[in-house]
Amino acid sequence: MSTATVHAGCVVIGPHGVLIRGLSGSGKSALADAMIEAARMRGSFSALVSDDRSCLEDRGAQVVASAPEPLQGLIEVRGLGLQSAPFEPEAVVRMVIDLLPEKEIERLPVQPLADVVLEGISVPALQVASDNTVAALSRVRWALRQLFPNGPDYL
């Protein structure tokens, strides 16, 4: 069992943990907040797990994300600072979102959901534009539909 701390946030949408990676200022917190609100609007369970820093732990065949203790239940709202938010202590990471400049994302990728390795475990990953939260939310919605076709639309 190994543990690492990474520069990423995590939300839980329905039963799925979604790790959001990106550079500082790329919109990790904004996308996390938009995903949580979109899920709630559909009546789905959603909550913050971590913002900006996530602890990743290998638990056999799963990667579990949590927040470092001093950051639990806190999310950065640009211009307002750290704000309290309902949170879950941990989530199994079922998908990774990488926020990148739009020019770095293929328009028609051969494999839209490539795998990345977290703590030795392969997890599907999606690249989304860092400067467009609405478009990113739409791509995440479609990715969740592809990954979990028999589940409800959480977003």
Rank of each mutant, 00 (worst) to 15 (best):
Leu144Asp: 12
Gly151Cys: 09
Asp153Tyr: 12
Asp153Leu: 10
Gln111His: 11
Val116Thr: 14
Ser122Pro: 14
Pro152Arg: 12
Leu118Cys: 07
Gln146Tyr: 03
Ile121Leu: 08
Arg139Asn: 09
Trp142Phe: 12
Leu137Ser: 12
Leu144Cys: 14
Leu137His: 05
Pro152Leu: 06
Glu119Ala: 15
Ala125Val: 07
Gln111Leu: 15
Thr133Met: 01
Ala135Gln: 08
Leu137Trp: 07
Val117Asn: 10
Val123Leu: 01
Ala129Gln: 14
Leu144Met: 15
Phe148Trp: 12
Thr133Pro: 00
Ala135Phe: 06
Arg141Trp: 02
Pro112Ser: 14
Pro112Met: 12
Ser130His: 08
Tyr154Pro: 13
Val128Cys: 02
Ser138Gln: 05
Ser138Glu: 09
Ile121Trp: 02
Leu126Phe: 04
Ala136Gly: 07
Asp153Gln: 03
Leu113Asn: 10
Asp115Thr: 15
Asp153Asn: 12
Asp153His: 05
Thr133Asn: 03
Trp142Thr: 09
Tyr154Asn: 06
Ala143Tyr: 07
Pro124Gly: 10
Ser138Asn: 11
Gln146Leu: 14
Arg145Pro: 01
Val116Asp: 14
Trp142Pro: 00
Ser130Phe: 00
Val134Trp: 04
Leu144Pro: 15
Gln111Ser: 14
Leu147Phe: 09
Leu126Trp: 06
Ala143Ile: 09
Pro149Gly: 07
Arg141Cys: 08
Pro124Asn: 09
Thr133Phe: 01
Gln146Thr: 07
Gly151Pro: 04
Gln127Thr: 15
Gln127Lys: 11
Asp115Gln: 09
Arg141Ala: 11
Gln111Ala: 13
Ser138Met: 05
Gln146Ile: 11
Tyr154Leu: 15
Ile121Asn: 07
Pro152Thr: 09
Gly151His: 06
Trp142Gly: 09
Pro152Ser: 08
Gly151Phe: 01
Trp142Lys: 06
